[in-house]
Structure formats: C-alpha cells, structure tokens
Design a protein around this nucleic acid. Structure first.
Length: 237
DNA sequence: GCCAACGTTGGC
DNA sequence: GCCAACGTTGGC
C-alpha cells in the first residue's frame, strides 16, 4: 500500500527506544497543555446541519474577541520532492487527484495543536489545500473532510517515516482524517497576496487580521473562520 | 541555501 | 519550572 508521505509536523518521530520514559513524560506535558486547545469543542446544544461551528478561546493577541468561530481549515502539503530519512514527502494537489476517489488519509501530523484541530474537524467541512515549502507557496484547491478523526496507523508501523514508538495501540497518540478533492480554486492564490491583505487588515482592521497562517506560521493544520474563508475565496474572482 | 521563528529537549 | 541549546518549518 502506498502511503503517500506528505504533511509536515513530526517532531515526535522517535526511533530511539532508550529515552522512551523521558520522551513520554515531556510529551504528556505537551499533551496536557495542548489539551486546552481541545476545549475547542462544538457547542453541545446547537448545531444546524452537517457542519457545526465550534469555538475557541481567542489567542491573547486577539484580545477583544473572547470567542472566534472556526468551521473551515487550511492543510499544508509539500508539492516538491524532498527526502526525509530517504523518503520523499512530496504530496501535491495532483497527487491527491490521482488517488482512488481523489481521497487520502491525512497522516503524519505529529504536533499536538495540529492534531487537536484534526480531531475537531467535522464531516463535510471544507479546507484549503495549501502548497508549502516550494517555489510558489499558496492555496491551490478546496478539499472536504470525508471521514472524521481516527487513529493514524502510521504511528504503529516501525518501518514508517511517521512511526512513534511512544504511542500505544490502546491509547493512540496521533489521529488523521480523510480528505477528498472538491475543486481547484479558480486561480492560484499565492501566500504573498494573502499576506498583503493580512498586513492591511492588521493595520486597519479586516477579516484576515488574525489569520493563523501568519500568527502560527508553522502549524500545518490550521482553522479558518467563516470570514477568513470567505475573504480568501473572494480573491479567486 | 540562508535563516527567522518557534517548538522541543533536557540540565539544573 | 526556567531557559539555553537544539531541531524543524517554511518563506525568501
């Protein structure tokens, strides 16, 4: 079975069993800390249809708004070949389109905050497919969540790039979702362009002023508010 | 290829 | 629990 390697985030790829105890300990700490992020859950009572909004505590940089609603996502993937431990991590939008059903499991996320975002994704929600670490970084397509979070099998596979010796089958540490291609954006939306708007909105106000792409630049799985998603989509035209 | 940003590790 | 050293991400 081909596991198209892709997706960033794998600081915990531990091959050394020796330091297991220590690693487990610090990771638990990290996990606890990130668990707060997880309090970002769908509001229990109200939910309309297929997708639900969910709330998250504003990052203190946001200040005034105590709650931000997210219902869309941004997923980073590398479109250009790059070897990691001898394995090519390339996974472009063309690679996604070439998958059966144009669907793939989003494996290899090894960062707690990104994992928690994966776990809060709901069936049918849309995400931007973003090309990172390449000549022209930016948004190329829209995908949707077709399977909600379940254990990432690569964490248990000793031979896999994303193997994590500290994760146990009884209590899997890492999750993945399945995503399916929806459509290409009408045009490529480069990071540089989004950034111009972000900076302007930050200075004068506007929907992209807190966009996580810039506030949490290294996160490979990011939430977007409805307003952020709509604004970025409006750039298509 | 450089390197800033930032997440993780581990000594104290 | 602090924080310096270290490693990774990812734009440029």
């Amino acid at each position: 079975m081909p596991w198209p390697s892709r997706k960033r985030d794998k600081e915990a790829v531990a091959d050394k069993e020796e330091s297991d105890a220590k690693i487990a300990k610090t990771e638990e700490k990290a996990s606890d800390k990130q668990e707060e992020e997880k309090s970002a859950k769908p509001p229990a009572g109200k939910s309309t249809s297929g997708w639900k909004n969910w709330k998250k505590k504003a990052s203190e940089s946001g200040g005034e708004e105590s709650k931000i609603t997210y219902c869309h996502w941004l997923l980073k993937s590398e479109p250009e070949s790059r070897l990691e431990k001898g394995v090519d991590v390339k996974f472009s939008i063309d690679d996604l389109k070439a998958q059966p059903n144009q669907t793939t499991c989003w494996d290899g996320v090894r960062n707690y905050q990104a994992r928690n975002f994966l776990r809060s994704m709901k069936l049918g929600q849309q995400a931007f497919f973003y090309h990172s670490n390449c000549k022209e970084p930016g948004i190329v397509a829209i995908v949707k969540i077709v399977k909600e979070a379940y254990p990432d099998h690569t964490q248990f596979d000793k031979k896999h790039l994303y193997y994590d010796s500290t994760s146990k089958k009884e209590n899997p540490k890492w999750s993945m979702v399945d995503v399916q291609f929806v459509r290409m954006t009408k045009r490529f939306i480069p990071l540089s362009e989004i950034k111009v708007h972000h900076l302007e909105h930050k200075a004068k106000g506007g929907p992209l002023k807190n966009m996580m792409l810039f506030a949490k630049q290294r996160l490979s799985v990011q939430p977007l508010t409805q307003e952020e998603f709509d604004f970025v989509l409006s750039l298509e035209e």
